Simulated scan of single mutants.
Amino acid sequence: MDRKAAREYLLSRPEAKEDFPFGPDVAVFKIKGKMFATLGRLNGVDCTNLKCDPDEAQALRDIFTGVIPGYHMNKKHWNTVLLDGSVPDYEIERMMDRSYGLVVRGLRKVECEALLLAYGPEVIFR
């Protein structure tokens, strides 16, 4: 997956917004003001930071060489995924969906319920 495809996929999530609070080189993707992903570069390689369940985060790091502890993030809850071809596209999309879903679950109840009502759980938690 390249940077353009990653950006398009992240923005395809319901009500996802792109912002640049850290400057023009790091895109931050939010749902209802809460960050669920970043898109930037690490050592010259495009990458994305994604929220993850702590147990799953470590398992993904053990499986894929292109998944490392979250760069500039809480390493227990975030992974950095290198967009260098070492992780299959379908797995990156699954991790993006999981990150989005984890953040939606953490929203205020009224915000979460409104998203579920508007889009359905199969879209929000795919």
Rank of each mutant, 00 (worst) to 15 (best):
G23R: 11
E122G: 02
C52G: 09
S99Q: 10
F22M: 12
D84W: 00
E113Y: 05
D84G: 00
A16T: 13
H77P: 06
L60W: 10
P88N: 02
E111R: 00
K4G: 12
F20G: 12
L50M: 09
D97A: 09
E111A: 05
V104K: 00
K75L: 07
G120F: 07
G66D: 14
C47M: 13
E93K: 12
R105A: 10
N79M: 11
G101S: 15
G120Q: 14
D97S: 06
V110K: 14
E113S: 10
N49I: 01
S99Y: 05
S99R: 03
L82G: 10
L115M: 04
I124S: 02
D84M: 00
L107Q: 04
L50A: 12
V67K: 07
D46R: 12
P14Q: 03
R61G: 14
P24F: 05
H77R: 12
D53Y: 02
P14Y: 00
R126T: 04
E91I: 08
K4F: 02
E93R: 15
K17M: 08
E93M: 13
L116T: 06
N43S: 15
N74D: 12
R3L: 13
G120D: 12
L11Y: 02
E56S: 03
V45Y: 07
A6W: 03
Y90M: 08
K34T: 09
P69W: 06
F36Y: 12
H72G: 14
P54S: 11
T38P: 03
K17A: 15
P88F: 05
V26Q: 10
F64V: 03
C52P: 06
A118E: 15
H77E: 10
Y9C: 05
D89Q: 08
M1T: 08
L83K: 11
